[in-house]
Structure formats: structure tokens, C-alpha cells
Amino acid sequence: MEGNTVKRLSRLRRHRAAGPMLLVFALLTIGTTFQVAGAVTTSPSTVADRSAAIAEGKQLFLKGCSSCHGLNAEGGAIAPSLIGVGAASVDFQVGTGRMPMADMSQQAMRKDPVYTPAEVNALANYVASLAPGPEVPSEESLNYERDGSVAEGGELFRTNCAMCHNFAAQGGALTQGKYAPTLMGVEPKHIYEALITGPQSMPVFSDKTLTPEEKLSIIKWIKAAEAEPQLGGVALGRVGPVTEGLLVWTLGIGLLIGVAVWLAMKAR
């Protein structure tokens, strides 16, 4: 009985059958790398780059966002002002595909982003140029594997996040049809941005009350929960006793009654 779960996970990588799961992971990894790489190559390093990005962002904004958010991002009847929301907010909302909103439903959903990473960056630069606000965290500052602690992250997650996102970050219900989305498969950058900007129903978690290291710990815990294999069998959605009850009322008692019917049937 040597080893801990970290060891378990490393063993798991070696033992994982090269099935469809691997393929999906590979694709995801490639996709993520590509996206990150794209973001890196387009991140403006000089003032000139930045002003070019701002100009491009303004054009994109006028075309795609101004009908709701106003020509100068001052907000409108159906959409809030974006002055001072910062680059992080734009990167989160547009980068996760929440904006532009497909329809005026209860809340914006995560979907495939409409804009390329470069375009997202330009939009973020433009909105950030209107008034100062939270910036997109640098990649160096997002090294959660190095700077985070998984156990501490779990404790912080349960205190600050689980009440909406559920104990295993699977999401949960809010009032009037709103919901806290699942955090499975969300990029660390986007989790971080959500924490500092408080998108939609979510409150803001200030750096003084939840330090950057603590935020990284939370991300580390979420990623560990995401990668955690099913230690006790099919996880049933990790939503607690409701699905367990459903299973026992269907498969459990169903199997037993099936056998009982066979038992009481006369043999031919």
C-alpha cells in the first residue's frame, strides 16, 4: 500500500489504454496548446503593437458588440457598460464564447468562441484602454502546479465556491433559472479571470481576501478534481445522493425483481 494519489495518477497515465479517451485528451491538448501559443504570439509587446491592437479591437467592437453595449461601450438598455471592466473580463466573456450572447436567455452560456484568440486579445486591449481594470493574468503568474497547494485549494474551494459550483465543481442551480456552470474543462486562465472580475451572477474575489496564490490553489484543486479517476466506480455525475437514489430505484430493484420473476416462473 505504498504511494499516494499523485503516484496513482502517474501510474494511471502509464496504464491508460490508448482508447478514445486518449484521443480526446490529445485533441484537447493540441487545441489548448494551439490557443495558448496563438495568444502568446499575438500578445503585443510594444506600445505600437498595443495601439494597433486597440485600433483593431475598436473596429471589432463596433461591428460585433456596440449594438448592445453602445458605440463607446457605455452600455445600453440590455447590456452593461464595459468601461472599467478590464481586459480580464473581456478575455473571459469572449474567450469562453459567452459573448457575444446567442440569445437573450437567463444567462450567457459557455460555447465555442466566435473570435480567434488574436481578436479576443484586440477586444480586450480596446476595452482596457477605456479605463483601467483587471488585466489578463500572464502565463507566468498562472503556474498553479508550482505555486498552488491542492489541499488548501480544496478547503478554499469548499468555503468560497462549492455553495454554487457543487462540491466537485459540477455546477449547481441559482435562482430563477440561473445556474453556476460546471468548471470541468475550463482553462485555468478563465477560472482566474472569473475570480477577479465576477462575471454575471458570480461575485468578485478580491486579491486581498483571496490572494493570487490562494486562487492558484483553487485552480490546482479544480484541475485535480477534473483529472481524478473514478475511485469507486461510475461517478454518477458527482451530484450527490439524487442520482444514487435514481440508480437504486431503476437498476438495483429492477435486477432484483427481474430475478424474482424468473424464480417464481414455472420451469417448462
Binding site: P203, V204, F205, S206, T209
Partner: peptide, 8 residues
């Protein structure tokens, strides 16, 4: 330490 919209 708290921005508008923040909780602790």
C-alpha cells in the same frame, strides 16, 4: 480590499 461586487 473589497471591490464593488466582491464577497468575503
Amino acid at each position: 480590499d473589497l471591490e464593488v461586487g466582491a464577497v468575503a
